[in-house]
């Protein structure tokens, strides 16, 4: 309650009988860079679309800077900047023309608008080519223009949905630097949505791991790693892997396929090994699976994050 810039309480969305987001509770604190990490289709975009008032939730409430989105949408939205997952800019127009329009949506006009446009273009490193039509930009420049359009009104909270998709490493670093500077120089709070583990690890103070429309863990990266990584094991099997897999299910979360079995035991490891060997399968190797966010993710969700990836 104290200094939450964004709070979601019991937020969820159903599309017909399909549940895109179950029930999400979340508080983003003032001044932090908060990560929302999850595979494609986990419900990240749906969640933040509800947080921004772009789609109406099936259940739950949203507050931005202490203002209820449902009762005072205009005031709540004024505190928030959204950088959508898609390149939500007009390709035929120049960066400046785009920003003039998007700034006006937040009530910016005249000299203030001109000053904010100059600032935002400088912040994302597009000042020199601001007069060109956006369609002539590289993928990375388009992304940076997309970012600038969400910053003009200096929101308390910026929500960035996969802002680095299809971007070269140089633009990506530029975007990261911009995000850090927004917090440092302007005290902005950032919600960073991504399905890239290493981005979230590099940038975020706290992370919520989203899977199948629910938050499965929330904390600092250190907390998540300490609590969930290092518990998992990877076994290589010879013999009847299917039977071994079935036997292991009774002793923890099982994933992997073929001869590889990944296991996060609910209790001790020994009974699980005994059960596997009792099926006649042989364990040819056993390794503990690292102590990083990736291992934590695997342990929490039972599957790898990357389904294709960059």
């Amino acid at each position: 309650m104290t200094d939450a810039v964004l709070s979601l309480r019991g937020v969820g969305k159903d599309y017909g009988k399909r549940t895109a987001v179950g029930t999400i509770d979340l508080e983003v604190r003032r001044g932090e860079i908060f990560g929302l990490l999850g595979p494609n289709g986990a419900g990240k975009t749906t969640t933040i679309s509800i947080a921004c008032g772009v789609i109406a939730p099936t259940r739950g409430t949203v507050e931005i800077g202490g203002i209820a989105l449902a009762t005072a949408p205009r005031q709540a939205k004024q505190k928030l900047g959204l950088v959508p997952q898609d390149l939500a800019i007009y390709e035929e127009l120049s960066a400046t023309q785009n920003l003039r329009y998007f700034g006006a949506l937040y009530g910016l006009r005249g000299a203030v608008l001109a000053e904010r446009i100059a600032w935002a273009l400088g912040a994302v490193g597009l000042a020199e080519r601001a007069a060109e039509p956006v369609k002539q930009y590289s993928g990375g420049m388009k992304r940076r223009c997309n970012l600038a359009a969400g910053l003009l009104h200096r929101p308390e909270l910026v929500i960035l949905d996969e802002p680095t998709v299809g971007v070269d490493p140089q633009s990506r670093n530029h975007i990261f630097d911009t995000i850090r500077a927004l917090r440092r120089d302007h005290g902005m709070t950032v919600v960073y949505v991504s399905h890239y583990m290493e981005e979230v690890e590099a940038l975020c103070d706290r992370v919520a791991i989203v899977d199948r429309g629910a938050i499965v863990a929330l904390g600092t990266i250190e907390e998540l790693v300490a609590a969930h990584a290092g518990k998992g094991f990877e076994l290589e099997l010879a013999g009847d892997a299917a039977a071994a897999r079935a036997a292991a299910t009774a002793h923890g979360a099982v994933s992997g396929d073929g001869a590889v079995l990944r296991l996060v035991p609910t209790g001790a490891l020994a009974p699980a090994i005994a059960a596997i060997e009792a099926t006649g399968a042989r364990i040819t190797s056993l390794t503990s699976r690292g102590t990083n966010l990736e291992a934590a993710f695997l342990a929490l969700t039972g599957h790898a994050l990357r389904d294709g990836g960059p």
Binding site: S49, C52, G53, V54, P73, R74, Q75, K77, Q78, L80, L82, P84, Q85, D86, L87, A88, I89, Y90, E91, F102, L105, Y106, G107, A149, G150
Partner: peptide, 14 residues
């Protein structure tokens, strides 16, 4: 399709 509509809905306009 492009998402500019999303931006418009996220802005403080009715």
């Amino acid at each position: 399709r492009t998402g500019t509509w999303r931006r418009l809905l996220a802005a403080p306009v009715s």
